[in-house]
């Protein structure tokens, strides 16, 4: 009775989550440029379109470049901060932790508008690199949270042993801290990368008039009607996210990363 209820409930939730994606996947293989489901005919040409059509290709290139760079920048900000907070007792430094989490907690339109007024005021509005900085600040929360979690899991006696044996700060960081923290750096980077790839409003408000990322391209295309390439891009994005998070889960401890401390329980 309970098992049946549970299975039915999970099935319905799964259906709710999957249904839009199933329809979009179906639409993406239509032979002609029609919005039809079930698909009429079968063609993968709309997937080819992402790479062959110069507009979609340049949007894809812009999005991937932006995501790669901004995720790296976000990690570069988060790593020293998380390390400092773990290594030192400096209560007032927690304010920076708070600042790192704030952009992600507030409604995104606020961070976006703040950055828009800022770039307009300093005169760099519309420069592609401003999007990199903006995304890095917007998503710095993700590596910051995973890294803070990573540092708390380091056994301090290991570090202490190294110090007793005469290793200096630099050696300790390179030979002990860094290898232990590496999985958390990778997952923090992965989270920031995937979210940056999908981000619309901050990118739109900072560089929307000079550069098209894929989400911006989809939105602009939506306003002028429908093209099946939107559907193929959607499926490409879902698959990318699933593969990246799947890899994080495969090589890391996903339940623990998401806050479940009793990960060794099962």
């Amino acid at each position: 009775m309970t098992t049946i209820f549970r299975k039915a409930y999970f099935f319905l939730i799964g259906l709710f989550l999957a249904l839009p994606l199933i329809v979009v996947a179906g639409v993406s293989v239509n032979a002609k440029q029609t919005l039809a489901f079930p698909p009429q005919g079968f063609s993968l040409s709309w997937y080819g379109e992402i790479f062959l059509n110069p507009e979609w290709r340049s949007a894809l290139f812009a999005s991937v470049t932006l995501a790669l760079l901004s995720a790296a920048f976000a990690v570069a900000i988060a790593l020293p901060l998380a390390w400092f907070l773990w290594r030192r007792i400096a209560p007032w430094a927690n304010i920076f932790q708070l600042l790192g989490v704030a952009p992600f907690t507030l409604p995104p339109v606020i961070t976006a508008l703040g950055l828009l007024t800022f770039w307009a005021t300093v005169g760099f509005y519309g420069q592609p690199w401003t999007a990199v900085v903006s995304h890095a600040i917007f998503f710095v929360t993700l590596p910051l949270v995973t890294l803070s979690l990573g540092f708390t899991s380091i056994d301090r006696s290991l570090v202490e042993a190294a110090a007793t044996m005469g290793a200096d700060e630099r050696t300790i960081f390179r030979t002990i801290v860094l290898p232990l923290i590496l999985p958390y750096i990778v997952s923090g980077y992965a989270f920031a990368f995937v979210l940056s790839l999908n981000e619309y409003i901050v990118a739109y408000m900072t560089v929307g008039f000079t550069m098209e990322t894929l989400p911006i391209k989809i939105f602009n295309a939506l306003r002028y009607g429908y093209t099946p390439t939107m559907a193929s891009v959607t499926i490409l994005f879902v698959t990318t996210a699933a593969v990246i998070f799947g890899l994080v889960a495969r090589f890391g401890d996903l339940p623990k990363l998401l806050g479940a401390m009793s990960s060794d329980g099962k």
């Binding site: 989550l17 329809v23 979009v24 999908n198 619309y200 989809i218 939107m230 879902v238």
Partner: peptide, 16 residues
């Protein structure tokens, strides 16, 4: 994966 999806994409999927 669904959480990371762009609002543009969710909007497009549901409008479809």
């Amino acid at each position: 994966s669904i959480l990371s999806l762009s609002e543009v994409i969710i909007g497009f999927a549901w409008s479809t």
